[in-house]
Simulated assay, not measured.
Amino acid sequence: MPKTFQQIESYYAGAYWGPRKESPEECARRAEAFLSAVANVDVSFSRWFQQGKSRKDALSRPIEPTREALEKLIGRGRDRQFEDLGYSVWAWNGVCVDCQDIGLNFSCGAYSEAVSNVCVCTLPTRGPNSERVLSVPVLTGLLRSMVLAWEPDFALATSSMLHDKVAPKNSAETFMGWLMYFPRSRGTVPPLPAPVRIEPMEDKGMLVILTPDLLTVSNPEHVELAQRVHGLLDRAGLLKPIITP
C-alpha cells in the first residue's frame, strides 16, 4: 500500500501594516526597538545573523542590534527597481544543527498600495526550544515586541494550517490565529466564548488568545472554537483586509 504522509504543522508570528513611507533611519529606529525588546522575551530571540552562502558563512555575519548598524543593513535591502517597495532584511538566529532555526524577516518603508509591510518570525516545531517558545507567555511577549516597535494594523501568532481550516477560500480578509492583536483603530473586540481571553496590549489595542494550550488543527475542539471566534470577529468588522484588493 502507498505510504501516507502527515503534513507537519508549522508556526509563525507576524505583524502587518499598510503603506507607510519611512526612511532607513526611521526603519532602523523601529528595528532596534524590536530587537532590544524581543531579546528579553526568550534566549531564542537574543541574537541574529544575516543570511549567507552556508551556515558557517552566516555565523560570521552577526547583526549588530544598534540603530547605526541596522540603518546600514536596511539601506542595503532597498528594492533596486521600485522605491515604493521599501526595504527588506532576512535573518536567522543561528541555533545548533540539531535544533530548529528561527527565521526573521522584516520589510518596512513600503508605500505602494499593492503591498503591506511585515515583520515575521518562523517558529520552531521541534528541538529543545520548541515547547518553551510555542507557549502563550513567550508568544505574547513576541507579539508585544512587534506591536510596540512596528505599530502594525494587525499581528498574530498561529499555526500555518489554521487559516485553511477556518477562512473562506479566496478570502482577502485578515487571517485567524492562535493569538491575535487588534489596534484600537480597527474596532472593538466583542465578547468571546471561553476559554478565549482578551487582554489589553499596553495602550495600543487588544490581544485575543484563543486557547491557553498549544493550538493545533489536529484537535477538532480547537478548530471548532476558531471557527466560532472567526465568525464573531468578522461580524465585528475586525477581519477586514489591511489593504483592500
Results as ranks from 00 to 15, higher is better:
residue 116 S to F: 11
residue 57 D to N: 00
residue 72 K to T: 10
residue 115 V to F: 03
residue 75 G to R: 04
residue 12 Y to V: 08
residue 153 D to Y: 00
residue 144 R to F: 06
residue 49 F to Y: 14
residue 110 A to Q: 13
residue 57 D to I: 00
residue 97 V to L: 13
residue 218 S to P: 00
residue 111 Y to D: 14
residue 128 P to K: 09
residue 37 A to Q: 03
residue 94 G to S: 06
residue 207 L to D: 12
residue 109 G to S: 12
residue 168 P to Y: 01
residue 59 L to W: 09
residue 52 G to N: 02
residue 142 L to V: 08
residue 222 H to K: 12
residue 7 Q to C: 01
residue 222 H to T: 02
residue 95 V to Y: 07
residue 11 Y to H: 09
residue 94 G to E: 10
residue 25 E to H: 14
residue 94 G to A: 07
residue 225 L to D: 12
residue 119 C to Y: 06
residue 162 L to S: 04
residue 154 F to K: 05
residue 172 A to G: 03
residue 233 L to W: 08
residue 163 H to I: 13
residue 185 S to W: 02
residue 94 G to N: 01
residue 64 E to S: 12
residue 23 S to G: 06
residue 68 E to S: 08
residue 92 W to N: 11
residue 135 S to A: 08
residue 193 P to R: 02
residue 82 F to A: 06
residue 197 R to M: 09
residue 186 R to M: 01
residue 36 S to W: 08
residue 104 L to N: 09
residue 103 G to F: 03
residue 95 V to I: 15
residue 78 R to N: 01
residue 207 L to F: 08
residue 74 I to N: 07
residue 67 R to P: 11
residue 85 L to D: 01
residue 190 P to H: 12
residue 171 S to F: 08
residue 114 A to H: 10
residue 126 R to C: 03
residue 147 V to P: 10
residue 55 R to S: 02
residue 61 R to E: 00
residue 245 P to G: 11
residue 62 P to T: 00
residue 180 M to D: 07
residue 8 I to P: 09
residue 242 I to A: 03
residue 170 N to Q: 13
residue 44 S to H: 06
residue 45 F to V: 04
residue 244 T to G: 01
residue 90 W to D: 07
residue 209 I to Y: 00
residue 119 C to F: 06
residue 94 G to Q: 09
residue 176 M to D: 05
residue 190 P to K: 15
residue 227 Q to K: 14
residue 75 G to K: 04
residue 232 L to V: 05
residue 18 G to H: 06
residue 172 A to V: 07
residue 155 A to P: 12
residue 225 L to T: 08
residue 89 V to A: 12
residue 204 K to D: 00
